[in-house]
Design a protein around this nucleic acid. Structure first.
Lengths: 135, 135, 135, 135
DNA sequence: GTGGTCTAGACCACC
DNA sequence: GTGGTCTAGACCACA
C-alpha cells in the first residue's frame, strides 16, 4: 500500500501536454523506486477530480503506459505497476533518464555564455531546495 | 562578420517545434553575446537546405524574432541582429534565462531518486564537453 | 504512391473497438507487404469522413501505432509507415500473426464437435471467396 | 454424470471478458453434444477457485445462460443443462456457429498475404493437436 | 492542408 | 467501485 500517494504535480500552463506530464512522472517514480511492481495507482477519476482535469486525459496517460508495459490493468480494480518492472533501475539507468534534461541545460548555458562554475552553482542551489522543511 | 556561424542545432524528432528551436537559439546567442547588434544571420534558404526543413519554418522563426525587435530585415542583405539590442545581458539576466531548464532537471533528479552529488557530477561532465576543441 | 488505398474495413457492430480494427488492419497490411516503409496513410479526417466515425477514434489508432514504432508522424504531412519497418515479414512472422485466430477457430470446432474435415472444408470455401471477381 | 469435466479454458489476459468466455464454452459444448440435458455443471465456487477469478463473474455467466434457457437451477444441487435443450444441434447449426471465427481468420489471412494453401495447412495442424492424448 | 490536445458528457463493461 | 469507448466540438500548432 503506497501511503498517501502524492498524486502528481500537474501544471496546465506548461507547453508539455498534461497526459505527458503524468506519464513522465510515473516513469520517473518507477525508475526511482517510489513506485514498485504491484503498487496501485490513484484511480483515473480521483486524479481527474484532484487536478480538475478531464478523466480522458488521465486515462490516455495510463493507457499509453500500459502499452509501454509499465502498468497493468486489473479488471475491476484499477491500474497497478506491472509485474515485470524492476524494483528500481540501476544508477546508470536513472542517470540515462536524466541526461536529456542535463544536456539541454548545458547547451543553453553555453549559448548564453554562462561560465560552467556559475551554472553549476545555480544547479546546486536548486538541488538542495529548502533545508528547513525537514524539522 | 560572424566567423563561421554554426547555424543551429535542429532536432526534428523533439517535441519542441522546429521554429521554436531556432528562435530560442538565436535569443540565447544574443543574450550570451555570441551574436551582437549588426551581425548577419544565415539566410532562410541556407538554413532550410542545411537542415532539410521547410523554408517557411525558418521564415516564421525570423519573422517572430523581428516582431520581438530582436532582428531587423535589411533589404538585399537579409536579417541582422537589431541595432537597439544590448550587447549582452547582465549575469542575472542570463541566469534567469537558464533557470527553467535547471529547475526542470532538478525536479527530475529528485523524482528519479538521484542524489544531488551524482546529478551535479553528471552536469559538470556535460559542461566541459571536449577539452581538445579549444586549441 | 499507394494506388487507391482501400482505406479500412470498419464494422462498428463488432465487439472489437473501432480503433483496434484500424490498428490490426494496418499491422497486417504492413506484415503482408501491402503497405511498405514510407507509404502514406489516409489522413485522419479522410478516414473519419469515409466511415462516419469520429476523427479522434482514428487518431487514437494512429497514435498507438506510432508508439509501437510502426508509423511515423511527418509534421504537416501526415502519417507514413516507419522507415525501420521490414518491407514484408517472413512467412513465419505472418503465420505467427494468423495463429491466434486459427487456434481460436480450432478450439471452437472441437467444442462444437465438428469433425476436422468439415471445418477444413468450410475454411477452404471462405479462402477462395469469389472466383469471378478476377475476370 | 459428466466424466471429469475439463472445467473451462479461461484466459484473463484476452480482450473477451471472462464471463463471456465461460458462456461461449458452455454454449458450444451443448451444441456439440459434450453436455447433454441433465448434466451437472461445476459449482460457481469450484470454477472460481480453479481459475482464480471472482465468483461473481462465474455466477453472472451461469445466470445469463439460465435466462437464455440453456441451464436450470436445481435446488441443493447446482446448475444443470436444461431439460428442453436438444441433445446436439444439426451439422448446419454447428457450422453456422463456427462460421464467424472462420471468416475472421480468412480475412486476416488475406490481409497478411498468406496463400490459402499455407493457411489451410496451418489450420489442419491445429485441428489434429496431439495424437498421443487419445490412449 | 496535416495531426494534437482537451473538454463535457454519454454509455458500456467488468468485478 | 474500476477503466474503456465514442461522440461532438473547440482550439491550437505545424508545414
Amino acid at each position: 500500500m503506497p501511503p498517501a500517494l502524492p498524486f502528481f504535480d500537474i501544471q496546465p500552463q506548461l507547453a508539455t501536454p498534461i497526459y505527458r506530464q503524468v506519464m513522465e512522472q510515473v516513469q520517473r517514480q518507477v525508475a526511482g523506486g517510489q513506485l514498485r511492481a504491484g503498487d496501485e495507482l490513484p484511480s483515473v477519476r480521483a486524479v481527474a477530480e484532484r487536478h480538475a482535469i478531464n478523466p480522458m486525459t488521465v486515462s490516455k496517460a495510463y493507457s499509453l503506459l500500459e502499452a509501454q508495459g509499465l502498468l497493468e490493468r486489473r479488471r475491476g480494480v484499477g491500474m497497478v505497476v506491472a509485474a515485470g518492472v524492476p524494483t528500481a533501475g540501476g544508477d546508470a539507468d536513472r542517470l540515462a533518464l536524466l541526461a536529456p534534461a542535463l544536456e539541454s541545460a548545458a547547451q543553453q548555458a553555453r549559448e548564453l555564455g554562462i561560465p560552467p562554475e556559475a551554472a553549476l552553482a545555480a544547479f546546486e542551489r536548486l538541488l538542495h531546495p529548502d533545508p528547513k522543511e525537514t524539522p
